[in-house]
Design a protein around this nucleic acid. Sequence first.
DNA 1: TTTTAATCAGACAATTTTATCTGATTATAT
DNA 2: ATATAATCAGATAAAATTGTCTGATTAAAA
Lengths: 146, 146
Amino acid sequence: MTVIFSKKCEYGMQAVLYLAANNKDTTKSSDQISRALKIPKEFISKILQSLRNSGLIFSTKGKSGGFGLAKDPSQIKLIDIVQAIDGLEMFNSCVLGFPECSPDTPCPVHDSWGALRTKAFEMLSTETLDQLKDKTLTKIKTLQQE
Amino acid sequence: MTVIFSKKCEYGMQAVLYLAANNKDTTKSSDQISRALKIPKEFISKILQSLRNSGLIFSTKGKSGGFGLAKDPSQIKLIDIVQAIDGLEMFNSCVLGFPECSPDTPCPVHDSWGALRTKAFEMLSTETLDQLKDKTLTKIKTLQQE
DNA sequence: TTTTAATCAGACAATTTTATCTGATTATAT
DNA sequence: ATATAATCAGATAAAATTGTCTGATTAAAA
Ligand code: SF4
Ligand code: SF4
């Protein structure tokens, strides 16, 4: 069972948070990101490539190349990453898996689940990455200690 | 991307809701359930078997056999099905996929996500299946019309 | 200019999830 | 008794997700 988002999306959010938490104008190599977040190097590399294609991050090739944010952290929200990787479909679908999710044909938990999806969307779309910076740094620090 | 629960779990919830919405003491064959919910017959059959092993439903073999609830609908909640199939792990894990999910090492969306998980748990554990019966019947009816 | 260290692209492999098949067993109805 | 219609169990297949490998390209540094 996945918790709402795919591994790709989870890793993507982690990596972009990581980039946002580091000094601007300095890139991080996929190897650094891999070690910091304990994500398989080649896998995060692929994910970062696709995020680059979406325009969320940029990359520089060659020696001392790497990845960095394409915009200022204050211009990016977690929902942007979700949209780029998993899409926004989940915010329009039913927790019980019924097709045709709409108020006209409510599923048995329609009201509660509708409210929840809204809350989840807000969670990902209100705060910007710079606002999440401190907590991100704390979290990453604990990852290293294992 | 899955929306919180696996297909198995979604189908399981649908099927048990379906059983709860039908007359008590009458069983439904996997074929009936399959057609009513538009779920592959062999697949829902497997899922029902495992729910039978969990003691949530019962089955009778042979001609005119089928599946029925092991308890009264007023004694079953959706969370019971989730627990039997996907487990309750998601209610203790991080939406960003960080390991070591705990208040000591909060992820950047700790507070909002914690509240959300609680809400989701409540959604699945407050109402009993008989309370969801009417909405279930409406939803299933619309499935037939396609 | 050569070595080195990085991204990039695409193929490939492993794993997990989802779905199907087959044959045995069971019980009802003819 | 026999045919029928269902569950059951286990193997298998297909699809999706997750993860790895290889070789080409790029650019910095020696
Ligand atoms: S409650 Fe209604 S709108 Fe919400 S997920 Fe279920 S069917 Fe869709
Ligand atoms: S917010 Fe904290 S407790 Fe909640 S999921 Fe993230 S790490 Fe876990």
